[in-house]
């Protein structure tokens, strides 16, 4: 972790509705290097909204304020929409939970990957095609030439997620945001996808923001973990030090999970403190 790819300071996101103002994110700060950074939280913690704000993809009703969201030399807060379009996909990739919603159903997956490459590099279509096939191979798809011609509905969940990863990595971004990217997958498939992501991060030296609700998964997979609760980062830890977590929320989450090997009669229930 030598250089900082992305720096976020005091990020605040709020929604103004008929029933008053709702603060989804209330002052989040972190730096991302060439590492796997996990953002963990329950529903409503603001973890996904934080990921969206980095790409400036928050819903129109959201008010985003921050002291700084800096990607290299670009200030995301004040960048033009054209700059942002260039950043999305080329410099920051986003993988979401369900690849079905992220892929165009009437275009073959290979063409979509090639298209993503062409948009950001202005290369010839032959080059792009070659590159897309190579990328399919890189995400460990057997027979990439055949899969190139397949449509999204012909994919299983695991394969769809590989395609998404290929599409996001083909333009060689600096940062990859995975928002619950493995939550819908079966455990055996999840294992393969995580190994693949890990491989990609190591080989290409990119920064990965891994947003998830699964504390156990993040602690085993990531280098560093931010634990979010109701729009705030309550604790930042090295993943391997999660057992030394001091915040009662983190501790409560850890305790509430059923364990395979040490059965307990009852699961401890998290008591929430309004002051967190």
């Amino acid at each position: 972790m030598t250089d900082t790819l992305l720096s976020v300071r005091d990020l605040k996101i709020s929604f103004h509705g008929a029933s008053g103002t709702f603060d989804a994110v209330r002052g989040v700060s972190f730096d991302l290097g060439r590492e796997k950074l996990g953002i963990v939280g329950e529903s409503g913690s603001g973890k996904s909204m934080t990921g969206r704000a980095i790409m400036r993809l928050t819903p129109p009703a959201a008010m985003v304020r921050a002291e700084r969201i800096q990607l290299g030399e670009v200030n995301i807060l004040s960048a033009s929409e054209a700059t942002m379009n260039d950043i999305r996909g080329r410099r920051i990739g986003l993988i979401m939970q369900d690849p079905k919603y992220s892929l165009n159903p009437v275009v073959t997956v290979g063409e979509q990957i090639a298209e993503a490459y062409r948009i950001h590099t202005r290369s010839s279509s032959a080059q792009a095609r070659e590159r897309a096939v190579a990328m399919l191979g890189a995400v460990q798809i057997r027979e990439p030439e055949r899969v190139y011609r397949m449509y999204p509905h012909e994919m299983s969940g695991g394969m769809g997620q590989r395609i998404m990863i290929a599409m996001m990595l083909v333009s060689e971004p600096e940062i990859l945001i995975a928002d619950e990217a493995t939550s819908a997958l079966d455990v055996t498939v999840r294992l393969e996808i995580l190994n693949l992501l890990n491989d990609m991060v190591q080989k290409r030296g990119l920064g990965l923001i891994f947003i998830s609700h699964d504390l156990n998964l993040v602690r085993r997979f990531c280098d560093r973990v931010l634990i979010m609760y109701r729009g705030r980062v309550v604790e930042t830890l090295k993943a391997s030090d999660l057992d030394q977590a001091t915040h009662p929320y983190t501790r409560g989450l850890l305790d509430a999970m059923p364990r395979i090997h040490t059965p307990r009669k009852r699961l401890p229930v998290l008591t929430r403190d309004a002051a967190w």
């Binding site: 455990v187 395979i260 090997h261």
Partner: peptide, 20 residues
């Protein structure tokens, strides 16, 4: 066995698993 292994690889508390 494959199912258990996959669940443990990125799931179970590592210390817990080691203890067991």
């Amino acid at each position: 066995r494959k199912l258990i292994a996959a669940s443990e690889a990125y799931g179970e508390d590592p210390h817990d698993a080691a203890q067991a």
